[in-house]
Amino acid sequence: MSPWRLAWRRLRVNRAAVAGGVLAGLIALATIAAPLLAPADPLAQPDPVGLQNLPPGAGHLLGTDGFSRDVLSRTLYGARVSLAVGLLAALLAVLVGGGVGFAAGLSRPAVDRLLMRGVDVALALPRVFLLLAVFALWEGVPLAAVILLIAGTGWFESSRLVRAHVRSLRDSDFVAAARALGAGRAGVARHLLPHVGATLIVCATLDIGNIILLEAGLSYLGLGVQPPTPTWGNMILEGKDLLFAAPWIALAPGLALLFTVVAFNLLGDGLRDALDPRRAR
């Protein structure tokens, strides 16, 4: 049986991982189907005075906010920014990190040392501070730039992991065999790629949750995607001022964040245990 099939079997019997995977899948589906599921237009303000700050009830399952907008609809639409940023930035980050780590692991010691020293310095940069500065100084950063910047400052860890993995495999028998059969650097790389793939999948999945939290935090500070487009972060920011009068405005997007991040972290933990059974405990 192939190692991927084995990993799939181990993943399937891990109840926490399955729960996380199912939950993440449902959240992703709900995000795509937001126009079908949302009871109202997330931007519509039917009556900013008469219908503002309504508590959760029959008409509005999660209540309305200070502008009479439906909180459930806004929470559903807010998922779009979170998931787009989380999934795309995590994917980009592991691709870049994987590429650099792979190159460093296979290249000459001088090049390897240079790359990894650079990564050491980059890892010690105060990432959030830099993102905060860029987002605040260039006001109204577009979504694509948010994704690129988060990915561009988030690939260092995975490059280290991949490099360590490549180096640990470089002297193994199957690589020696490939070399003996005449494989060049590209040939060796092709043999190593499937092994590193597992590391990258785990890295990416565990990164999604962190990136979603990071984007939400920046959004909460009024940065990144701007209102009236709902993001979970800017919804919590708006709910903060009405916290005592209408707590549901901040609670709903916060719970959505919590469940989403828990789902991806459960799935990531499960994938790590399934793909690297020696580490499972």
Partner: peptide, 14 residues
């Protein structure tokens, strides 16, 4: 896991 997955600013508000 839940603690680690909670947005700190939201936990603060709660």
């Amino acid at each position: 896991l839940a603690c680690y997955s909670t947005p700190s600013f939201w936990l603060g508000l709660v």
